[in-house]
Design a protein around this nucleic acid. Structure first.
Lengths: 194, 194
DNA sequence: AAATATATTGAGACAGTCTCAACTTGGCAA
DNA sequence: TTGCCAAGTTGAGACTGTCTCAATATATTT
């Protein structure tokens, strides 16, 4: 696993780069431990820098999340593309949905950020979320073309379903999240076209 | 609409009762405006009392919510009981689920509180949530007995589904919440019994 | 008109977000 | 090698918010 590059910026000064990496590493640990609402102050403290440094690298919590999730979200999009070749359109869809849900589950509270970011174009996470949504859309369209998924379900519905199921799983148990996802996808398949 | 009685307490002093009512009224307004994470300080300020007074009446945010939602949640349970006489078991279930979702939607952020409270027995909202869950269970069991809902769906699944759909609706649009609920319920109906 | 149980007050301890003027320091050019 | 300056860091400080509790005030009872 290579460390994420700092956006499309010019070369950073050595100390800046060091702090950037350090912050990212501590953020990963602390978010994993306390969820995405964890104190940014503590991340800075644990990284051994002043909080102003954190804010200068990551102006918002979402910018930090974006840097942390960039690779993973790209992978998720790639996975969707790969699954377009899967022999079973239905299976491809459910496999991807489960993978997406697993991704959404790495940090507690992430679902809310991801859901909010798809709506909020000014969010630093927006582009990444949009890419994931679009990736899912390919699989959904393919299933609809094959006639196994009702045509009134949208990519946005799929995205919302994945996040809602992940959210529920986060509140109660992962197993319940899985179950909700299954119900939802089954419901999207049910014959009753409106 | 009668005002909620302050729990099963003895008689309160006149000024205390006045403040209690005032706090409840302001809380309703402010929660409606800013969601359930609104500042308690502001509620106290707008009610014209010191914040200590708010805390003495409602030791936690959930205690305040409980007082605010008590009637409505009781009604929801009653509605479920009434619907047990509905000619269509399926329709009864979906009607109630929609009503429950509407209830969950009165304040932004409520879904999270309600979902957390079903798990957390020490929450002041726990009992009320449990009552709602049990009410839904009756309708679910009836549908399962009638053979229209798969038997591996639990009352907890139904509760989670309603809240998850409401949550999604809260993040994007109410219409999407409705759609997710439909998909979920349809999925619970689908033949594939495991 | 006390006496007393009941309520209210608001300052204060604490934790968190975010900003910005003052300071450091890395890296380049002479 | 030196010195300069753009780039980076610092941390105090202005906020907003939660929650507590000793001091104070007030309703009710006798």
């Amino acid at each position: 696993m290579t460390t994420a590059d700092p956006a499309p910026q010019r070369r950073m000064r050595a100390d800046a780069r060091r702090n950037y990496e350090r912050l990212l590493a501590e953020a990963a640990t602390i978010f994993a431990e306390h969820g995405v609402e964890a104190s940014l102050e503590e991340i800075a403290r644990r990284a051994g820098v002043a909080n102003g440094t954190l804010y200068s690298h990551f102006p918002t919590r979402q910018a930090l999340l974006e840097a942390l999730l960039r690779d993973r979200m790209r992978t998720l999009s790639d996975t969707a593309r790969d699954l377009l070749d899967h022999p079973s359109v239905d299976e491809a869809l459910i496999i991807w949905a489960r993978a997406a849900m697993a991704h959404t589950t790495v940090y507690r509270g992430l679902t809310t950020s991801l859901m909010r970011s798809i709506e909020d174009e000014s969010s630093q996470l927006h582009a990444a979320c949009q890419a994931v949504l679009t990736a899912g859309e390919q699989l959904l369209n393919r299933a609809q073309a094959a006639g196994t998924v009702r045509t009134d379900a949208t990519a946005s519905d799929l995205y919302a379903l994945i996040n809602a199921a992940a959210w529920a799983g986060e509140q109660t148990s992962p197993a319940q999240g899985e179950r909700l996802l299954s119900f939802g996808i089954d419901g999207m398949r049910s014959a009753t076209d409106s």
